[in-house]
Design a protein around this nucleic acid. Sequence first.
DNA 1: TAGATTGTTAATCGATTAACAATC
DNA 2: TAGATTGTTAATCGATTAACAATC
Lengths: 212, 212
Amino acid sequence: MSDKNNIKISEPSLKRLPLYYHHLKFLNSNDVKYVSSKKIAEKINLKPIQVRKDLSITGLVGKSRLGFNVKEAIAKIEDYMGWKHKTDGILVGCGDLGSALLGYDNFENYGFNIIAGFDNNKNIVGKEIHGKKIFHINKLKDLSNRLKIKVGIICVPPKSAQKIADIMIKSGIKAIWNFAPAALIIPEDIVLHQEDMASSLTLLFKKIKNKF
Amino acid sequence: MSDKNNIKISEPSLKRLPLYYHHLKFLNSNDVKYVSSKKIAEKINLKPIQVRKDLSITGLVGKSRLGFNVKEAIAKIEDYMGWKHKTDGILVGCGDLGSALLGYDNFENYGFNIIAGFDNNKNIVGKEIHGKKIFHINKLKDLSNRLKIKVGIICVPPKSAQKIADIMIKSGIKAIWNFAPAALIIPEDIVLHQEDMASSLTLLFKKIKNKF
DNA sequence: TAGATTGTTAATCGATTAACAATC
DNA sequence: TAGATTGTTAATCGATTAACAATC
């Protein structure tokens, strides 16, 4: 079953939950106990009704006149998102971008942990980047198998991306997060999540055009 | 007016256009002259009708029985997206992620050009990263004003993000692409495009859950 | 011609928004 | 109590998909 609670969640809603979460954490750090959907909506530029709908997906219940208990809301979102359940992953390609991701300490807050980096550059193999050990790519299969790693991040140049994806799949990786601007060809049963700067840039430009 | 052609485009469509584009470029490099929406759809895992709808937004017209002219399609997408019109930007925070973006040579294909980086670290100020000169942050206002820069990228640690955003806005920047995991407070008339790893990670995990 | 493909128009699907009774 | 806020149910809006005539 996909969802514990059998409540469908739309992709837009799913993307908004972290936004509420950030804001709720901020409120909590300021000792705010209750917050209304109206207040949240103002901050995040949404409609109150949308905030309520989204939050209700997590099972959170508010109080009339008071709004939502901030601590409770935080807990419900963490719970719903499964951020407590830790998932391990590995990263291939320890250049600038790979290094940045290895050092992105925010991942642990979202239940994700990169346990090691891989590269084929002899100058960095054996070293550590942001406290993560870097192995040669030919160790990938062995290590992934042994630790039953299911998530792989690709940060290599686009030309090598397909090759790395193939290695990952052979190594038992089931989900690929691809930061290389390359369209990967992968089997049906593998999850591919493409990070696309071009699309993102496009959205930025669209926003600019809409505004001016 | 927002759209030259007065044809509304949905955000999902806008995100798909680069996907078609990549594939069309690939086909073109293989000397394919015509391609049907069915073939494209198969490659990108979409429905043929959706491909046709999206492509029609660019003004592209196909041929019965043949499909779409590959070169023509590429040109129409480039045109519609405005990738020929170059926009300059500056980047603040030249750590791992900032360096990665300074070296992301794909940007130029999408009409974007980072003309310089800024940092407050004396060890890198005055140096070059991927051929881009790095200036001290206190030069930002002067340089942005002089070159009439309208787009700023933030790659500093979350704690400094708001401060940098404020400086950018004072310097005449009109659109901010924020890679720092921080919710920025900005005036109404400034465009904010937030790059959110947490949301992205969340989507990856959702895809995994849906699959298994 | 027969068959493949486009592009238009209409139907469906899903997300957002509105309205409002229930609550404190 | 009066007023603010929730959560439910219904209406609206917009994107996707289906159906199919037109084209070559």
